[in-house]
Nucleic acid binder design. Structure first.
Lengths: 337, 337
DNA sequence: TTGAAAGCGCTACCAA
DNA sequence: TTGGTAGCGCTTTCAA
């Protein structure tokens, strides 16, 4: 059977209270005793039960991570960064794929609460901020990564999406494009809206408009959705000469659409993605995209969360952490013919 | 404050034992009482604490998943399948990226034990099976997915790697290749060894050999490793005309190597991958690869694990679940010039 | 059909 | 410096 604190105490001829203090480095225990007890713990291969500790109100050293879909490389890379950093700090991470469905989000949130996570990282879009109130009222700190929620209690760590949109549009404008369309995953997500705003703004500065007909959004399966939307956008005679896709997966869908329509990329159609996931570097042609420093963001989010963990709810920060995106030019963009 | 079982009991004018029975559908409680209590639970927004339940020896409804690297699309897709299926069954999943390092594996295993997971899914290579003994002695069921451990206590769910290797080699042989080299991620992983054995066997049947110089392995960063190894293999005058890479990431590295050497794929060099991740379909050229039905495997693994959860340790299955792989022909293979 | 009470393993407070 | 002990919220006999 597994050794408990009682076994250690008995073996050491002390009370469990003493052992507990040794474990937690509290109280004043003599060097001697301390070392003796450590020795016994090692000999008995004793491992404190996180569960029992959690029951008495201590931390569980578990974080929750909500992402729409872990099989999307962007979120996989995010999960990796988060998990890595958390691991370094002694935390483990429960990863939840929400598929952007409120119902799943709710179930997961319940689950995570029941399991008493110490903190939550949200990488998924959320309509309904009420879902967070139970967490908030329990003083569980929440950071959102790569998107914002409307709740004042979540600390965002994000890339400057607006700037990203501008960057993409400017790149396209500089190459001489004037008919630029946008494909977004979902207008529910703050980051998509911001990126579109950036595009619109950049166009505006160039004296151009972003017609509503050139903004497309929606869908779950990003790849096929990107393709479907691109197909639709490219139908009209007055088709756009460039597509800005709000993520790489959508961009790849667009790439497939172009292939299907026998439009050469970048000669006949330019495509810009967003995220700079591994996908962007391997496609045919390689994708010009806006890079989100996802690894850095993941690390930052975890550090931030853990530092908030220590504080009383009152003293929590409310700062937004914003990182600037970068344009990565590959081969999917060129001057229009 | 959060409602506890005591609040519910008080409100209902019964004892906590009764409430507990209602929650767990045990004992004989009158319809009336039962409904009344359910009502009160709902009204109080009562959520049983998984932690407290776990302390008394009940399940935690948490599974552990060990993968080498969640940012590798293959494992991301695996994680997604596992997580999805687990979620359907009411379980959550703690995902751990081991980087194939024994030390990390050990830490994670400790962590998972402390948190009392109900079951473990191993998707990572493991040298040291001793790390599993603590789990085994606690009767925690373990299934390995897409690879085997040497421990008799883990139930494997895998693709027929040997057949996969053969499939790849046969495809190449049929196209007229005779100088076929193999790039593997690590010989520590059973699946790699099996795939190579399959290749060797197929070659053997065709009266050919797989020289040791044509087998390359090792490394962590799969992409750059694939490139490095391909570069090395393609150096000699007697260079191979085809490369079988033990996963898609390696294959993409090889693709990059070919580009660097200005070798056209597939005209001058054929490349076959393994896994059929999303990557394979978007590369330039799209990758011929061996498909692992990863979604199916993930589901199977979870179902298997959960069904084992119910059984006493003695009655556990020892069956291997093997699925046949499929060849997916795209554009990275052709007859040698 | 229901309830009392003994844990589960640990923490934290108060005494000694 | 150390130990006693009352919980933490829930499950599970055993009695009533």
């Amino acid at each position: 059977m597994k050794a408990t604190i009682y076994d250690v105490a008995r073996e050491a001829g002390v009370s469990i209270a003493t052992v507990s203090q040794v474990i937690n480095g509290k109280g004043k225990i003599s060097e001697e005793r301390r070392n003796e007890i450590f020795g016994i713990m090692a000999r008995l291969d004793y491992r404190p039960s996180v569960i029992a500790a959690a029951l008495t109100g201590k931390k569980t050293y578990t974080l929750g991570l909500l992402v729409p879909d872990i099989s999307n490389p962007f979120f996989a890379e995010m999960a990796r960064a988060v998990e890595d950093q958390a691991h370094h700090a002694g935390y483990s991470v429960v990863i939840c794929s929400t598929h952007n469905e409120d119902e799943r989000i709710e179930r997961y949130l319940m689950l995570l609460q029941q399991k008493s996570i110490d903190g939550l990282i949200i990488g998924t879009g959320m309509d309904n901020n009420d879902l967070l109130t139970p967490l908030v009222s329990k003083d569980i700190p929440i950071v959102s990564i790569a998107r914002e929620t409307r709740s004042p209690h979540t600390l965002p760590v994000l890339v400057n999406d607006y700037a990203g949109g501008r960057l993409a549009a400017r790149h396209l404008l500089e190459q001489g494009h004037t008919r630029i369309a946008v494909i977004a995953e979902s207008l529910k997500v703050s980051s998509s809206r911001e990126r579109i705003r950036g595009v619109r703004e950049a166009l505006h500065e160039a004296g151009l408009e972003l017609p509503d007909a050139f903004v497309s959004a929606g869908g779950h399966d990003l790849l096929s959705e990107g393709k479907r939307q691109a197909l639709a956008l490219l139908q009209p005679a007055e088709r756009p000469t460039a597509l800005f896709c709000c993520n790489d997966l959508l961009a790849i869908g667009a790439l497939q659409a172009a292939k299907e329509l026998i439009l050469r990329v970048p000669e006949e159609l330019s495509i810009v993605g967003f995220d700079n996931t591994i996908l962007a570097s391997v496609t045919d042609p390689p994708l010009t995209t806006i890079a989100q420093p996802i690894e850095e963001m993941g690390k930052l989010a975890v550090d931030l969360l853990i530092s908030e963990l220590g504080k009383a709810a009152k003293k929590r920060t409310h700062e937004r952490t914003v990182i600037e995106p970068e344009l990565v030019v590959r081969s999917s963009t060129a001057a229009p013919q």
